[in-house]
């Protein structure tokens, strides 16, 4: 059972549900931000994109304090699988489930475009359906997606292999030109040290159908689903 958290201002909640239920055939439902517990059978928590609480103050800053986030925190602490895209990534950073923060895009503008990201590791629960070095095309759409952390933290991310996706060009080269928003080290997505919480700016739920954004997003969502099924069997 997949819990898609719905904050007031979430936008991609129903798209995430569509990707999981209609495309991947998983059991999923929307969980309102006022809930204080997750459904008992929850195996995956998804924090969708959008503008939770209007993204006033800072993106994700207020969603972090909503009642459901306490439950998400406990779920993650117990080793549950959590994935946040875009605003969900921002919420994860604000709530300390992931290190760092997402800053205003380097060129200030909101950016919506199909983006190439290189998979750095495929030995994780979020990328098992990919190959290392593989280039995925997944759209981004955000105004504040420039990943930032201090030098020490950046070093830790690199040393621990926590960076799972980096912005790259069509050939997979990680270059400054291919960095759409000014993220440090071209970071598009990072995982926590334990490996069960993943945040990424690209929207895999918008790349799940041939003809509507392509299907590269399924590789990430599908990997996660595989992991949940494997855990169920174990």
């Amino acid at each position: 059972m997949i819990a898609v958290i719905q904050f007031p201002g979430s936008n991609d909640d129903r798209d995430m549900l569509f990707a999981m239920k209609t495309i991947l055939g998983a059991e999923a439902s929307l969980i309102w931000h006022q809930e204080t517990v997750l459904p008992a059978k929850t195996e995956i928590v998804l924090l969708p994109g959008g503008f939770s609480y209007g993204d006033y103050l800072r993106c994700g800053a207020m969603a972090r304090f909503s009642p459901v986030m306490g439950a998400v925190q406990r779920f993650a602490d117990a080793g549950g699988f959590v994935l946040g895209t875009c605003n969900g990534f921002q919420v994860l950073c604000e709530s300390g489930l992931l290190p760092g923060i997402l800053l205003r895009n380097r060129k200030l503008h909101f950016l919506c475009q199909n983006t190439a990201v290189r998979v750095e590791r495929s030995d994780t629960i979020f990328t098992s359906r990919t190959k290392p070095g593989e280039v995925l095309w997944i759209p981004i759409k955000h105004g504040e997606g420039a990943y930032y952390a201090d030098t020490k933290q950046m070093q830790r991310l690199e040393d621990n292999g926590q960076i799972l996706l980096r912005y790259c060009d069509a050939e997979g080269s990680v270059t400054e030109d291919a960095n759409p928003n000014g993220s440090l080290h071209n970071i598009a997505g990072i995982v926590n040290e334990r490996g069960n919480v993943f945040g990424l700016m690209p929207h895999p739920e918008h790349a799940v159908e041939e003809g509507i954004g392509g299907t590269d997003g399924l590789k990430i969502l599908g990997s996660l689903l595989d992991a949940a099924l494997a855990r169920r069997k174990a």
Partner: peptide, 8 residues
């Protein structure tokens, strides 16, 4: 807690 993010 709320008004600032101490990372930045």
């Amino acid at each position: 807690k709320l008004l600032s993010n101490r990372i930045i």
